[in-house]
Simulated assay, not measured.
Amino acid sequence: MAVIWAMVATVVYLAATAAGRSDHVPTDACKSMFPSGHGVDAQLSEPPYVFTLPAKMAPNSEVIVILSGSGSSDTFKGFFVKAFNDATSSPIGSFKAPKTIDCDGPASGAHHANSTSKESVTLTWLPPLNFVGSVTFMATVVESRENFWTGVVSDQLILG
Rank of each mutant, 00 (worst) to 15 (best):
S117L: 04
V142C: 07
K118G: 05
A9E: 13
T136G: 01
F80N: 12
V63N: 09
N85W: 00
G20F: 07
P48A: 06
S120K: 10
A42N: 13
P59F: 01
N147D: 10
F34D: 15
V11W: 12
F95S: 09
Q156K: 01
V142F: 00
V142Q: 08
Y13L: 11
W149M: 06
D155Q: 08
V81I: 14
W149G: 00
V25C: 14
V12E: 12
G151M: 00
P47E: 02
Y13P: 00
W5C: 03
I101H: 07
V65S: 05
P26H: 11
L53D: 07
T136N: 05
W149Y: 14
S115V: 07
F84W: 01
P98D: 13
M7C: 15
Q156P: 00
D23R: 00
F95A: 13
T27C: 08
I158E: 14
I92E: 01
I158K: 05
P35H: 09
F148V: 04
N85D: 15
G37K: 06
K96I: 02
F148A: 05
L14W: 04
D86T: 14
L67A: 11
V12F: 13
G78R: 02
F80L: 13
V142Y: 07
P26L: 07
D41V: 05
V50L: 05
M138H: 05
S90Q: 14
L44Y: 11
G160R: 00
H111G: 12
L159G: 02
S72F: 04
F84G: 15
A55G: 06
N60D: 15
D23K: 06
Q43T: 11
A113W: 13
F34W: 14
L123Q: 05
P91C: 07
A6G: 13
G93A: 05
V25R: 06
P98L: 14
D155G: 03
T116W: 01
S68R: 15
L14Y: 06
T52M: 02
L44I: 14
T140V: 04
G105T: 01
T100W: 08
P26N: 10
K82L: 11
G105M: 06
D28E: 08
V142H: 00
P35F: 12
W5E: 03
L123P: 09
G105L: 02
P54G: 10
G105Y: 02
D155Y: 02
V11I: 14
V11T: 15
G151F: 12
K99E: 01
I66F: 04
V63E: 02
P48Q: 10
S144I: 10
S154A: 04
S68D: 00
P47N: 06
Y13V: 10
R145H: 07
F137S: 04
A18F: 14
S89P: 00
G37I: 12
L53K: 02
S36W: 08
G109T: 07
S61I: 06
G71E: 15
F84A: 11
V135G: 07
S22V: 11
T150N: 11
T140P: 12
G160D: 05
Q156D: 02
V153C: 01
H111D: 02
G151Q: 03
T88L: 05
S134K: 12
P128Y: 02
A139D: 12
S89G: 08
G37M: 11
W125M: 05
K96G: 15
T136F: 03
T10S: 12
V142R: 00
V11Q: 04
T124E: 10
P47D: 01
A9Y: 11
